[in-house]
Design a protein around this nucleic acid. Structure first.
Lengths: 133, 133
DNA sequence: AGAGGTATGTTATAATATAACACTTCCCAT
DNA sequence: ATGGGAAGTGTTATATTATAACATACCTCT
């Protein structure tokens, strides 16, 4: 898989970010390398997502690089998104339940989205410390 | 739980629709009863969602009425969304896996989103018939 | 009656995403 | 080698989704 220059720019920006980035945040960052319009960002994102190198977080309208070294494509990834700090953790889940429902309802499953929202360990700890004063 | 007039209008519109409706589709439908601005729709939706009477479909930016008679709040609901006809089926899933991940990572889970995309049984059948000509 | 909370109507604007079109680049089949 | 097609690019314009802000209205409890 060979990435174009634009796709590499976007992927690098996502990898260097600590948090998910919106398409417009990416655009802002990539003005210097020559990005001028949202379509450029969205097109690169589309390809990256197609190839499993990035994900769109549906509950956030934002994008992240795939954090797994190997094949994200083989397994189902879920995201835990912290509402306090914005970090998104990717993890693998067993989708047996969903596949079972799909099969028993003759639903031809193409794509699965699983996102959980809440507070990450770090932010929960800080919140508690605050409360203890 | 007592709904206001606006909330009832929105809930009825959602219930009568076969498919998920966008906020602006709702607005368009509710011009006659006196809706004039998106904020009116969004506010009503917020309350309905808060009370478990409606859901937002994150992958669709659209809204549906809860299809369960009883308490959707007690269990985790997932949606199967057909990319051909747009229908969204609500069903209950076991989120043991996710809760387990959250617990073992000290993630304070607030909300879970599960949506699957694909083709419903009916549309898959029609597609096949089409291909058989 | 009046204070506090929630809902409402309204105007304006922010944030996210796509359409459309002309042009380029690259590959490879003739 | 060449020209034809697929994919990518740069650009302008616009569509779609969502929120901010603020004045007013409507309840409910005292």
């Amino acid at each position: 898989m060979q990435l174009t220059a634009n796709q590499q720019y976007v992927l690098c920006a996502l990898k260097e970010a600590n948090n998910p980035l919106s398409a417009y945040a990416l655009l802002k960052q990539l003005r210097k390398p020559g990005f001028n319009a949202p379509a450029q960002v969205y097109r690169a994102l589309d390809r990256l997502i197609e190839h499993g190198l990035a994900y769109r977080l549906e509950t956030l309208n934002a994008y992240v690089a795939c954090s797994q070294q190997s094949n994200c494509e083989r397994s189902l990834m879920a995201f835990a998104i912290c509402d306090a700090c914005g970090q998104a953790d990717e993890f693998e889940v067993n989708d047996g339940d969903l596949r079972h429902w799909a099969q028993s309802h003759a639903f031809d499953l193409e794509r699965t989205v699983i996102e959980i929202r809440g507070r990450c360990a770090t932010c929960t700890r800080h919140q508690n410390e605050g409360a203890m004063k």
